[in-house]
């Protein structure tokens, strides 16, 4: 069939176009929109997961606003979001380093090396890290013992911090000491180089023309100046995209906390984040309606953040 060009106005009334879109639209409506709309509706009900629901109006939302655990979980998640943004730096630096490699062949092999660990599912990654955090058998404590870092931490605890988290006579319990929970969650994933992030930044860097670098060299720019004046500003679109992904991912995410700390958020509930509290309320307390309300609050927060991000964080090219 030959391609037919038509005006936008005409296209609106062409039933064939709708026919082609309909199957995909149907699937999106069924599997994406319907569950979301269902969650919105159920957030106004007392619902324990079965067929039975009782309408309670705004009660779930008022309870959520007065929920001290939910409030403190937002404090925790804010810390993790800031940490997550800072943890983008190694990926940016690595992308720049790879980009500056003169040999195409070596660039290729570095990219392959980055891709290979991606075949490991995230879940397995988390379990591996759980093992790293093991106080008796874990890699972290073994390394700290070997390089004398533990002694330094014990000294710091005794003379500065006074946490009683680092004791000379027992291994460091990374996930059993309340004050070490957030540092452990931040430290997770060290050295914080995500293949996808590096690829996104690399794509941005590769769009910078060679003439820009030539001009910089002519002007006598150093490597650092090239990074700060050319590369970093020109990949701000990708940086912004990654910031959005980090913020949304961190706000929604709870898998890491659940697998490392359990549904109660670990000792003193220090690892409780909004997503985990939503899970806890649904599957531990059986308050599915309330969990939907928490989900809706999260959705609104993410929507507002995304709106402000798009409106105010502009990138001047």
């Amino acid at each position: 069939m030959a391609a037919v060009s038509m005006s936008g106005r005409r296209a609106l009334y062409n039933w064939r176009i709708y026919l082609y879109v309909l199957p995909s639209l149907g699937l999106i409506l069924t599997f994406c929109y319907f569950p979301a709309i269902s969650a919105v509706v159920r957030s106004f009900f007392e619902w324990q997961g079965g067929d039975y629901m009782q309408f309670i109006g705004w009660e779930n939302y008022t309870n959520a606003f007065n929920d001290p655990v939910l409030r403190s979980s937002f404090v925790t998640i804010s810390v993790l979001i800031v940490a997550g943004i800072i943890k983008m730096v190694p990926s940016i630096l690595l992308a720049v380093l790879i980009h500056r490699i003169a040999s195409d062949r070596w660039q290729y092999w570095y990219r392959v090396l980055l891709i290979i660990p991606m075949v490991v599912p995230d879940l397995v990654n988390i379990f591996i890290w759980k093992f790293f955090f093991d106080p008796n058998l874990g890699l972290i404590n073994a390394s700290f013992d070997l390089f004398g870092i533990k002694s330094a931490l014990v000294w710091l605890d005794q003379h500065v911090l006074h946490w009683s988290a680092f004791r000379p006579d027992s291994p460091i319990s990374w996930l059993n000491e309340p004050r070490l929970i957030i540092p452990s969650l931040i430290f997770w994933g060290f050295p914080w180089i995500g293949a996808m992030s590096v690829y996104i930044f690399l794509a941005g860097l590769q769009s910078i023309g060679a003439e820009v670098y030539e001009a910089a060299e002519l002007d006598g720019a150093s490597s650092w100046q090239k990074f700060t004046k050319i590369e970093f500003p020109l990949i701000m679109t990708q940086v912004r995209l990654n910031v959005i992904l980090v913020v949304i991912g961190t706000l929604q995410g709870y898998g890491l906390q659940y697998l490392l700390l359990g549904p109660a958020g670990g000792p003193a509930g220090r690892g409780m984040v909004p997503g985990l509290w939503m899970f806890n309320r649904a599957f531990i307390a059986g308050q599915f309606g309330y969990a939907c309300a928490i989900g809706m609050m999260l959705f609104l927060i993410i929507a507002v953040l995304t709106y402000f991000n798009n409106k105010y964080i502009r990138v001047e090219k």
């Binding site: 955090f133 106080p135 008796n136 058998l137 319990s173 059993n176 670990g266 000792p267």
Partner: peptide, 21 residues
């Protein structure tokens, strides 16, 4: 118990045990 037992799960305890620790 071994230090930090509260943070490990069932498989880890089994691991310690069968490893004769």
């Amino acid at each position: 118990f071994q230090p930090g037992f509260q943070q490990v799960d069932r498989d880890s305890a089994t691991f310690y045990f069968v490893q004769e620790r």
